[in-house]
Computed example of a mutant assay.
Amino acid sequence: MNLQSFRESAWNGLWRQNTGLVQLLGLCPILAVSTSVVNAVSLGLATVLVMAVSNFAVASLRNFIPYEIRIPVFVLIIAALTTVVDLAFNAYFHDLYLVLGIFIPLIVTNCIVLARVEAFAAKNDPVSSTVDGVMMGLGLVCVLAVLGGLRELVGNGTLFSGIEMLVPSLSPIAVFGNDYPGFLIGVLPPGAFFTLGCLIALSNWMRTRAAQRKHAMLRPAAPVADEAPSAP
């Protein structure tokens, strides 16, 4: 995999084909766990791990998997990796595991993971597939981090609530002070829809502006009309 291919995979995963803002995949976990930065990023990183390893495994075994049974085999690989991640969260981050609940096992059915395995890993080499899985997952993490941060900030006036579940010596940041009354809709399901809708609208606006600037740069300059000859 050369540098150009790496840049292309990174740009596709983080922006051009972002799973949360462009493809709109995996909306259930995106909307459900994004009540705080810690919850959102933790599930996002778990998804990145599953995507990277499952892409690598499928790309390595793609020539040995019969085409007719590829989907069940892909699901079994993803399920095995998700089980490992689920048990690791339960063992090392038990409090966070209880907060995330069913959404860690539901990585098995996350259409983001299966879509990349089917669309990319089953057709490319292991290195490129692993990079694709990591970048697509990081694109999801970025959306989850921004969405969780905005909802937590509006709803509770804090950032990194629950960080003590990962690092006991740290504590949340009270951005608006301890007297902030909170805006309940920020952490309720409607707040997730409103915030994600605003992020998608902002993303579309930025893409449109970028396309307009590119079109303006590529547009040839209008030819200057020849000056009329002066009268004798």
Rank of each mutant, 00 (worst) to 15 (best):
Q17E: 10
E8Y: 00
M135N: 14
D95C: 00
Y92R: 00
M136P: 03
V85W: 03
L87Y: 11
S161L: 05
A121T: 11
T158W: 11
V58R: 01
D95F: 00
M206R: 13
L150Q: 06
E227M: 09
T47P: 08
G13M: 05
P168V: 01
N90D: 10
L81Y: 14
I112S: 05
V141G: 13
A79C: 07
V99T: 12
V134G: 02
L87Q: 09
F64S: 14
V154R: 01
Y67F: 14
G139S: 10
H94V: 08
G101Q: 00
Q17Y: 02
S203T: 07
T47G: 14
V22I: 15
T195L: 07
P190W: 10
M206H: 12
G101L: 00
P168Q: 03
L153E: 09
V141M: 12
L150G: 04
V75W: 12
G101D: 00
A80V: 15
N63S: 08
Y67P: 01
G157E: 02
F103K: 00
G44H: 01
I163P: 08
P232T: 13
Q212F: 01
L159P: 13
A231E: 10
I78V: 14
G13Q: 06
D125V: 06
F183H: 04
P190K: 08
I163E: 04
L27K: 02
R70D: 06
I77Q: 09
S60T: 15
D125F: 01
D179A: 11
L49E: 01
G182C: 07
A231F: 12
V99M: 05
G157V: 07
R62E: 07
L188V: 01
W205R: 09
R219G: 04
R219E: 06
N63C: 06
F183M: 13
G162N: 02
S60H: 09
G101Y: 00
L24H: 08
F64P: 04
A228Q: 12
V127K: 04
F89E: 00
L98D: 00
I69T: 15
T19E: 10
A210P: 10
G182R: 03
L76K: 07
A80T: 15
P168W: 02
T195E: 02
I173S: 02
G149I: 09
I65Q: 04
C142N: 03
V187C: 05
S171L: 04
L24E: 03
I185W: 13
L45E: 02
A228T: 12
I112Y: 09
T130Y: 09
S230V: 15
M1R: 00
Q4V: 08
W205Q: 11
L81C: 13
L196H: 14
V73I: 15
I65N: 01
E118S: 13
G186Y: 13
N204A: 08
G162P: 07
